[in-house]
Structures are given as C-alpha cells and as structure tokens.
Design a protein around this nucleic acid. Sequence first.
RNA 1: UGGGGUGUAGCCAAGCGGUAAGGCAACGGCCUUUGGAGCCGUCAUUCCCAGGUUCGAAUCCUGGCACCCCAGCCA
Length: 563
Amino acid sequence: MKNDIIQETNVEVAPRKNFIREIIEDDLKTNKYGGRVHTRFPPEPNGYLHIGHAKSICLNFGVARDYNGKCNLRFDDTNPTKEEQEYVESIKEDVKWLGYDWEEREFYASDYFEKLYEFAVQLIKKGKAFVCDLSGDQVRQYRGTLTEPGKNSPYRDRTVEENLDLFERMRKGEFPDGSKTLRAKIDMAAPNINMRDPVMYRILRATHHRTGDKWCIYPTYDWAHGQSDSIENITHSLCTLEFVDHRPLYDWYLEQLGVYRSQQIEFAKLNLTYTVLSKRNLLQLVEEGSVSGWNDPRMPTISGLRRRGYTPESIRLFADRIGIARSESTAEVTQLEDCLREDLNRRALRAMAVLRPVKVVIENYPDDQVEELEAVNNPEDASMGSRKVPFSKVLYIEQDDFREVPPKKYWRLFPGNEVRLRYAYIIKCESVVKNSKGEISEIRCTYDPATKSGSSESQRKVKSTIHWVSAKHAVDTEVRLYDRLFTEEFPAGENWRQYLNRNSLEVLKNCKLEPSLSKAKPGDKYQFERMGYFCADEDSKPNALIFNRAVTLRDTWAKIEKK
RNA sequence: UGGGGUGUAGCCAAGCGGUAAGGCAACGGCCUUUGGAGCCGUCAUUCCCAGGUUCGAAUCCUGGCACCCCAGCCA
C-alpha cells in the first residue's frame, strides 16, 4: 500500500487552533486530569469509514499526539444486527493508512459487556433502574411528545428484588426478544427526551461478531458509551453535535455510578458538497450497485479515496484546513481536491500520457531515427531526477491539443502554428489528413532541429508546450476518468438518488503512455503532464495497466473557454 | 410560551471589551518548455436583525429572526 515512488515530504503545518484544543489546554493548565490527555476514536463496525470519519480520526489522534497523550481505537459494537467483522478489518486498515497508531489499545465496547452488566445491577440496587414490560409501541406512547411530558411506566415501581430477579432472567434468556427492557429511572417529564427513562438493555437474540451467542441482552449506545469512556480513563470524549442532547444522560450515568468522569465535547460533523456522507446512504449505493463497492473510486469512503489516488497526507491536510467548530458547515469538494493537488504536485513523478490520441507525423524527421530525450521527473524537486523518453517520427498527441479552426486565445496546434513538444522540438503544423468519414486521421508537421530541448539554440519561445508519446514506443492502457458522483450540490431528500451523476465514470481504452510508465504498480501515483494526477488501479495486470484519474490539474484554459 | 445547538466574505474559520487573523475560491499582474506550479497584489468600514450598556461592542445586556438536532429496544 505504501507508495515508494512518492517521496516523503510534508504538506502539513502546525495544527489549527480550535475550541477543543483550547479546552484541553485549559484542563492541562488546571491539572484537571493530572496532565493526561486521552481520547478515543469510537466507530461502530457497521460500514466503511468515510471522509467524515477521517475528520474525527485526525482530531482525536491529532490532539493526542500534540498534547503527548493517547488515543484508543474502540469499536462501539453494541448492536449485533448491523455489525460485522469485515467492517472492523476495514476500519483498522483505514485508520492505519491515514497514519495513526492506537498501539495495543484496540478495544471493543463488547469487552465491557460483563462490567456493564454489573453497573446495571448497581443502578437497580440504587433504585435507579427498573425492568419494564412495555412493548416498543407502548414505550413510544408513554414517552410523550416533544411538547408534552410522558407518563411513568406501570412497571416503574417494581421492587429492587423483583428488578434484580427479572434482569438476571433477561440475561439468562427466559424472555422473548423485545418483551422486556431495562430502563433508567430518571424523569418522564424531562424536557430533554433522552432523560425520560431511557432504555439501557434490550433483549435481542443475534449472534455478535465477537461475543457470539453469549448474550441475548445488549446495552444501548447511551448506556455503553460513557461507561466505556470511563473504564478506559478517557479524558476528552469527542463526538458530533447530535449527541449534545445526550450529554446530560452521559453525565447522569457516570454520576450515579460514582465512577471516573470523562468529559463529552461535541463538534460539528463534516458535510461535503456533491456527496452523501451517511452510512445508510453509502450502504444503499453499494447494495443497489450504483457503485462497484465500498472502495469504488467515486465513493467518499477512505478506501474509495485511497483507490482513487488520494494520499493520507492530502486527507490530513484537508482535515486541518476545514477546522473544528460547533457551527454546522459544508465544505466544498473542490477543497478536498485541492489538497490532493497540493500534495501530489510536490511529490508525484511526472510522465507523459496521451488519453485521446491523434497521430502526428513529423515529415522532415528521419524515418527510423529514435532519440532518447531527457525529461525532468518533477520540476518542483530536482532531487527526483530525470528519465529518458524516446522520440521518433510518428507520435501521438492529445486530440484536444489540435484544432483545425482555433478559437480565440487558443495557443496550441493548428494549421500553420508552432508549438513545442515537451522536452523535444518545436513543430509546425503543415497539413491535416482526413479519413473517408471526414475525421482527422493524421496531422502532418515539420520540426525545427535547432530547437531541441536543452540545446543552446533551443531558446526560441512559442506560446505553448504540449505533451506527446512516441507511437512505436507507446504503452497501451485503460484510463478511468471520474467525475463527482452527484450532480447536485446537496443531494438530499427522499429522492437523493435521482441526483446521481450518470457520467461519473468514463472509461478510455486507447490511451498511450510513455514507456517508463509500464513499470507502474497498483497504488503508484503520477502526474500525467497537463492532464492531472493518476493512480494505477488495483485492477491492473502486468501487461494491461489501468489508471484512475484522481483529480485534474487546475485548468485556466477550461475557464477561458467557458466564458 | 418542549428542550438543545448554531449564525463572522462564495466556502471553511480565528476572534474571549481596545477598533475584523488565516486558508480555499475568485480577480488582477509577474514568471513559466505543464494554459500546471511558483511569486506579488486585490478581496468584510463590518460580524443574522433591532435596541441598550460603554470613551470604545463581532465580543456584554434585552428583544426578535433564521437554520440545524431530538419523540429507535440505532449509533
């Protein structure tokens, strides 16, 4: 997975200040946790991680790193009906790939099931929890509404002994699924609905990916999360804004139990234009076949971005640039793309690749001559050296780099015009050959031998430089061009799928690469000069390479043309 | 007249009573053998609105408005 062609450099700078770092610095100053900083990243293994999770990962691990603390990886696996081992594997891979290390601290909420059970018994003994026989529907009715208080469950006043007995029998499997719950006894009239006697345990016969069939009762998120934080001695429990309302409950449990108090702090989750970022939606895209899988290069998943050609550095840069705050916001996808450009510009090898080829014949170039021309590997970084590129009489250039009738400000090849062939000569278009259908089959040019790149007489300026590939040396390849998955900036609502971009994938079968590219391995990233950044796909075979376009280069010409 | 959260430029986001950081985008110019990159410059007389306090308010107070979250035995 490591790309050894890419040099180790660092596009990242000092992390941005944000309100969470401020709180932490304050706590450090007042010695609130004895100088400790201990965070956790708590994914539920019910899907693949996406760019929104990356924001959280960078926050939690980044803060731990910067304040000399620790960050645990904890799987929040309290719902066996949705969770799978495949997901935990992918999550671990993605966190590692992003560059973070949880060392030996790989934890699971399910590790604490026994302890959580004991805690629940404690609460029952304190008279703070009870076994409730209300059905799901009835619980809902009793809960009241947003504007009306709820009513006490008729089972609320069972004795401690009865609750203890019932709860134990729940665990033993004496009652059918859904027939009973354990509930906290708080306040059915609380304006915060989370405090209206929330469910702590439900009866659920499902095989858990780690505990198997050992349990038939499972803790709810609210009951498991804070106690897990406490058990792990987490100092700052960072989560997203939708949990703000849960904080009073988080604190209540810890307080009633009299255990170590972690502190929950909420921040705004990431939204991205032209993409969906909810696991539910992403799952649907995968299951309905709108994409090829969780790692389809168009997916905003970490694995999709990785396959697309994104680097961990670019994602971390992005996370840093968007910042952390409490106001809900939507970052522009272009900003993500820009982070990749910034990273790859400095590190990626350059190469020449013609995606939509048209043949050029240099009339005055000797028929069988081949020259090995010197080409720089990365103009941003001399240490990356240079390579040889073969030049001969018949070449391919990009169809787009030739116009029979040039528009205004078009500086590339057209009849009578001169352009430089990158690292080679200045050529002039003399004529055009067309086939029976009127399509251009060949562009006839002459070259000026005095203009060879690097020679003392090569200084003559022409308005533009284009890339090329020698026809007889070209490596044929497939290139997959990706565009955004959605056509709408905010693909929301019931019919969000109607905004799927039907042209989000274009496959080019007849691309011509310079020979040095034949040694590319899956995951290798290059800048195809003037075309964009490309990444060799995992579908590549030794003699049948496939490249994904990760992102185009910035294109001011495209902008001019639009006007 | 349920509770909670949030409003600073096109998009992010600092700002914590002393006179609106920074990044991205955009727009000019320079430079360029990638219409890339780089460099230089421009880009909020005003911080959701209205009052008030103060020598001084994006910051404090009062009253509005807008948007988001919550009625899973999901997380």
